[in-house]
Write a protein that binds this DNA or RNA. Structure first.
Lengths: 243, 243
DNA sequence: CGTAGTTTTGATGTCAGTCAAAATGTGTGG
DNA sequence: CCACACATTTTGACTGACATCAAAACTACG
C-alpha cells in the first residue's frame, strides 16, 4: 500500500495541489494539526452517504473517488470524479448535510478536515481563507464546465472532453497526461456523461479506430492530443447555441 | 423605478435572503459599510464580462440576470439565472477573473461587494464567514442539480423542473409561487435546458393543453403544482440510471 | 401600418437510446 | 491449473425523441 496514506501535510507531495497550497511552512504545520488521517478505503467502500451530517471535508490522498446523487426510484447519477489533492464534500456546506454520496473506485486514502477547526483556522490564517475560496471557486467553475458539456455537446465531444479532463488532472499530479488507466467502469463514465454504456463503448471504439486514442479495457493512451481537443470544438453540437 | 435600488443592507427587505442572513444588527451595519450601490442596469446591459478581472461580487437587488459562457465560435451557453437576494460572480473566486458574463434580463439593480473588504470582514465576523460558505455550498449544490437535470432528464421533465425552480425561488422571495412572468426569452430557456426553442415552445404548449399550466407569452400560471412535480419524477428519462 | 424580432406550428431527418446477444474479463472452488 | 459462474464490455439491428428546416402567426415599437 502507498506509504502516502499516513504522511502529514508538511511531508505530503500533494502540498502544492491540496488545501495547504500557498501557505507558509508554519501555517501548513498548523493545518496539519487539525487534519486527521483516516484508514485506507477499499474499492466500492462508501466514504460518506447522502443525507448524513457533515462534520468534515475530505481530501483525496491516494486512489480515486466517485460522487453520486441517489434518486427516489433507486437509480443514481454520477456528479463527478475526484483525484488526489482534490477536496470532497463541498456541496454540504449549505446545510451541513451531504447532498451526495461518495465511494472509492479503488483502494485509496483520504485526509479528514474537521469543518469547525477549519473555520477557526481560516479566521487566523488569511491565506487559508483565500485558498478555501479559490477551491470553492474552482469547484463552481468546473461544475459550470460540466453543465456546458451536458447541455450542448454531442456524444463524441463528451467522450473527448472526459478524456481531456482526466489527462489534464493526471498531468497536474505529475503523472503521464497521455497514458493512464480509467479507474471507473464504463457504466460510471456513461452515467457521468449522460449517455448509455453502449454509446460510450461505441465512441471509444471509434476514437480508437480513428487512431486518436488507443484503448484496451481500462487502459487509455492518447495518441493525438490536439485532434482530441479539436473534436470538442468542431464536433457537431447536439444543441446549437445562440448567435 | 423600484426605490429598493438605493436602500442599504439594514433597510433592505432581502436582508434575510442575501449575504447578511443570520448576522446581528451591528454586523449587518459593518457589512453595509463596504457594500456599494451601483446605478440601475437596463435590459441587455452587461454587468461583467467573461475574462475581466473580478474585484467584487454582486448581489441582485431587483430585476433578474442571466449568466453565460461564450465559446470561441461566437456561440454562447447559458449557465444560470439570478433573482433578487442571490450572489453573482462566485465562479471567479478561483483565479480572480470572471469565467462567465452576466447580463440584465430587465431593468434591475445590484449591490457591489468588494472582495478584499469582504475577506477582511469574514476574518472579523465568524457568522459572515459561515454565511459565505453556506452560499458557496448552495451554489455548488444547485449546480449539481443542474448537472442532474441536463444529464438525465427528458425534455418535458426539464421544462417542468425549470418552472418548479422559478416557482420555489419566487415563493421564497415572497412573490406568488404559482403566477409569475418569465423574464427571459424562449431562446434563453432553451439554451439553459440544453434544448431548442422549438422544443421549449412545444413542451410549454403541451403542458398548457394538459391544463398543468396556463402559459401566454411571458406569463405563466401553475395550475397543478403536484402534477408538475410528478412529471419530473415519472417522466421517461432520456438516459436511464444505474441499478 | 410596416418592419423586425420573437414565438408557434408543421414536416422530415438523425443521433443516440433500446433491446438482444455475443465476446471478453474476473473470481472462486476443486 | 482448469472449469464454471458471473460481471463487464462490445457489437448489431431497430426505434423514437428531439433537432432541423421552413413558414406562418403573433408582438412590439416607431
Amino acid at each position: 500500500m502507498d506509504t502516502l496514506a499516513w504522511t502529514s501535510c508538511p511531508d505530503c507531495r500533494l502540498v502544492g495541489l491540496c488545501l495547504p497550497h500557498g501557505l507558509h511552512t508554519n501555517e501548513v504545520k498548523q493545518l496539519a494539526r487539525i487534519v486527521k488521517n483516516k484508514r485506507p478505503l477499499q474499492t466500492d467502500e462508501l466514504l460518506y452517504v447522502q443525507g448524513d451530517e457533515c462534520q468534515s471535508l475530505y481530501a483525496v490522498k491516494s486512489g480515486s473517488f466517485r460522487s453520486f446523487i441517489a434518486n427516489k426510484d433507486g437509480t443514481e447519477q454520477t456528479i463527478g470524479f475526484y483525484l488526489p489533492g482534490e477536496l470532497m464534500g463541498l456541496d454540504s456546506l449549505q446545510y451541513g448535510r451531504f447532498s451526495c454520496s461518495t465511494v472509492a473506485l479503488e483502494t485509496g486514502a483520504v485526509c479528514e478536515v474537521p469543518l469547525l477547526r477549519l473555520n477557526e483556522l481560516c479566521a487566523k490564517i488569511p491565506g487559508l481563507q483565500t485558498q478555501m475560496m479559490r477551491i470553492l471557486g474552482k469547484e463552481i467553475a468546473s461544475d459550470h464546465d460540466k453543465i456546458l458539456l451536458l447541455g450542448h455537446r454531442a456524444a463524441k465531444a463528451r467522450m473527448a472532453t472526459f478524456l481531456l479532463m482526466l489527462s489534464k488532472r493526471y498531468g497536474a499530479l505529475g503523472f503521464s497526461s497521455t497514458v493512464f488507466n480509467l479507474s471507473m467502469r464504463r457504466q460510471d463514465i456513461a452515467n457521468f456523461l449522460g449517455l448509455t454504456i453502449e454509446t460510450v463503448s461505441r465512441q471509444l471504439a471509434e476514437l480508437n479506430k480513428q487512431g486518436v486514442i488507443t484503448v484496451k479495457q481500462r487502459g487509455v493512451q492518447i495518441n493525438d492530443l490536439e485532434l482530441l481537443k479539436a473534436l470538442v470544438e468542431h464536433c457537431p453540437v447536439q444543441t446549437p447555441c445562440v448567435k
